[in-house]
């Protein structure tokens, strides 16, 4: 993986890396862990905390807790600058159920910049998409990492 010390060429990165799945795996959710997750957050809706509820399902923000096995696409450069977690967005569309196989696929969804008086920041957005064995989309979770570019020495 090359270590880049020049200004980040955002357009080139977008051309090379956006929208290609670089990580994929399958998992099966454990009912008790889902209930513990929800209860520890203060959730009160029965379908998230009672494993015997007929509509029991993962709490809506659960998708944010999943992580790709590989954080970046193969060949993606590392950058000089401080990388920080800039935020997470989760958008559930159908219930994630305990005991059923769920496929998790990750692609780089966006790369963009913001420029202010103190310099330029580059944002990398990884999107994980979740689907069940029928191929139904269950939702997505975005993780944004920001790098504040350092002046070149």
């Amino acid at each position: 993986m090359p270590n880049v010390h020049e200004p980040i060429d955002v357009e080139s990165l977008r051309d090379q890396f956006l929208n290609s799945v670089f990580d994929e795996y399958e998992l099966v959710l454990d009912a008790q862990k889902l209930a513990d997750y929800a209860k520890s957050c203060g959730e009160t809706a029965q379908k998230y905390i009672d494993t015997s509820n007929p509509d029991f399902q993962a709490p809506p923000t659960f998708g944010s807790s999943l992580q790709p096995k590989v954080r970046y696409p193969k060949g993606f450069p590392t950058f000089k600058g401080l990388g920080m977690d800039a935020g997470k967005a989760v958008s559930p569309s159908k219930p994630m159920r305990a005991g059923e196989p769920i496929t998790v696929k990750t692609h780089m969804h966006d790369i963009y910049t913001k420029t202010g008086r103190s310099g330029r920041m580059v944002f990398f957005v990884n999107r994980m998409e979740f689907s069940n064995a029928n191929g139904d989309t269950l939702g997505a979770a975005d993780t944004s990492i920001v790098i504040r570019e350092k002046p070149q020495s």
Partner: peptide
Amino acid sequence: IMSQGFLSA
């Protein structure tokens, strides 16, 4: 992600 859970709750 726990803060997200608090907000959802």
